[in-house]
Design a protein around this nucleic acid. Structure first.
Lengths: 337, 337
DNA sequence: CGGAGGACTGGAAGCGCTTCCAGTTCGGAA
DNA sequence: TTCCGAACTGGAAGCGCTTCCAGTCCTCCG
């Protein structure tokens, strides 16, 4: 602390010398390994303190062949995906788990060609001890790459194609089904849907839930329009739906952003929510609370998603063989339905 | 590629041997340094390709004394801060810049004691080549720590106390002033404010802007209530303001979330927006578009913030001496004012 | 009192890459 | 033909830490 600022940081060798022991012994106390006498241990500890020694993580990484970090890889078309507060929650969840370990979190956006290449390198060079992959679309080559690289990998949401051994997902089908059933139980019979991208598992799963509920309820009406999880696409979809089915009386949107967009379009069209048209979304983010009226939505435990993905990854790194995990959703009833 | 999967990755030594050159030469072509004859260079390149060699970043880091990563450190009281899409934008901005370099992005939440300790270690061990710090509150020790650690550091928003040499900020005072002036220009004379946390520079700066505008406009009325940038706090503040000043005719909220909360409270209280009460927010996030009615807001270039912070950090790492940067805001007029 | 066995100890060999520096080559100017 | 410097070359010394392994020391049992 009181040293001249530019002074080279002390090395373990210096600590050992200062303590009058071998470098080996010093290393042992650093990793509190056995086979160090109490006396030497004390001496080393003292030397460490006196010298203000801090082990060099890079050197340690080289020697132990462990990077000391895991990566969260977010795929997608556009760095703008991060505008979705969804990821913030995932990151927060992951962080709280990692905090308890000595691993750091690396964040990689595989949204551009350049980004993809870098992720590939990351995997190949084993610059991280494990990866979590999210938002893979279609048959993104990333999933195969990750699997082939032999790096522990867990997926957030199943990729559309190919089986992956380790993933944690949300029960999208069930959530969507419950949402739609709720609408049906309200007496609605002309329930439309604004789906998510159909080249993702989430998109398809939520649509499936919508279909299942309709079938179960014996409702013949069916109307859907695709969106890409943005508010804007929700507006467009709602407009299209309204044009085709002016008499619809409910809408299930595959996420809150799109539901919010739908709400605006419905307002403009003079429909009263929920009297004329009931709306339910999916996510349970702040957006659903801010919406007017507050949105009934399928809440998914995003924070838990991040947390569980990380736990699973840690287990994997520790050599265990965790099982895939499906997180439950809960319907949050507010005013829009 | 066709190798048995578990095969140890080739090292530079093996490449050199395969190519019939010294390790030194191989290293040179790897870093395309001069002093390698064309022939040998070709040979090495071929060997690299044939062996599928990928340099080990850890070893390189140890040898070059460069970590190959920078950290984005987010302070705050709670990992929940990440629920704010704000950070997603910053991250996206930072990522696009880092993508062009060979640096990775490390994300650290210094929201818990444990987190703080880890950040401290990160700084002391020089596990990263530079750091970007955001959302420091009050006199967070982090800023001093970062400065003392001698690691290149740029701040996102000035810390409240202490001078920091390198930062990029948004022109909060001006933005708030323009927002308030806009309200005044609408003929409003009883303009209240919902401020951000007053132990942050943003919070204070935006409040100052509000005050300045009022003074300039010669409006005597003054009423403010504090919030913490969450929607909930915005609601509470609005309720308090309404109770104290039932006759207010405009509200400036220090961010969109709080403005959205205010909107809801105003609705419930039966006020029409903007006829009875005009509202303007700050941020320009999706929330402002979703709100009902769409929120007039001070748009700040968050993505640019992330981008510029990163550029500044890169300059710093490169040994340059960049100047602080203040980004402009723009008033986006929508229906709420 | 001899030994077996457990608890320590530290020298030395890495981990995979960069880079200094002493030397070698070689074309072309003198 | 001789000599000089520019262009190469590669041995070797690190970067800072972990860990194998050959020993040394002690204690306690028979």
């Amino acid at each position: 602390m009181t040293d001249e600022p530019t002074r080279r940081r002390p090395t373990l060798d210096e600590v050992a010398e200062h303590a009058g022991v071998s470098r080996t012994a010093a290393s042992r106390v650093l990793n509190n390994a056995p086979n160090v006498s109490h006396g030497k241990r004390e001496a080393v500890l003292r030397a460490i303190k006196e010298l203000g020694f801090v082990p060099n993580p890079t050197a340690r990484a080289l020697a132990t062949q462990q990077a000391g970090a895991v990566a969260l890889i977010i795929a997608g078309e556009d760095p703008a995906v991060l505008a979705d507060p969804f990821y913030g929650q995932v990151i927060a969840g992951a962080s709280t788990v990692l905090e308890e370990t000595d691993l750091h979190l690396m964040l990689c956006l595989a949204t551009s060609t350049r980004g993809q290449i870098r992720v590939k390198q990351l995997l190949q060079t084993r610059a991280v001890d494990g990866v979590m992959l999210m938002s893979l679309r279609g048959d993104d080559p990333l999933s195969r790459l990750a699997l082939e690289a032999g790096v522990p990998a867990v997926f957030g949401g199943k990729p559309l194609h190919g089986e992956v051994p380790f993933y944690v997902d949300v029960d999208n089908v069930r959530g969507a089904r419950e949402a739609t059933e709720h609408l049906a139980s309200l007496g609605r019979t002309r329930i439309a849907a604004i789906t998510g991208p159909l080249d993702t598992d989430v998109g398809l799963a939520r649509r499936r839930g919508y279909h299942e509920a309709l079938t179960l309820a014996g409702v013949p009406f069916r109307a859907e329009e695709g969106g890409d999880f943005t508010e804007r696409s929700g507006m467009a979809a709602m407009e299209a739906l309204l044009a085709r089915h002016p008499d619809l009386d409910a809408v299930f949107a595959a996420n809150d952003n799109m539901a919010a967009g739908a709400l605006r379009v419905l307002h403009r069209a003079g429909r009263t929510i929920p009297t004329d048209v009931a709306v339910v979304g999916f996510d349970g983010l702040t957006a659903s609370e801010i919406a007017e009226p507050p949105l009934t939505t399928v809440h998914q435990p995003i924070r838990d998603l991040g947390r569980e993905m990380t736990r699973m990854l840690l287990a994997l790194i520790a050599g265990e063989k965790p099982s895939p995990l499906i997180l439950p959703t809960t319907l949050v009833r507010r005013e829009s339905a």
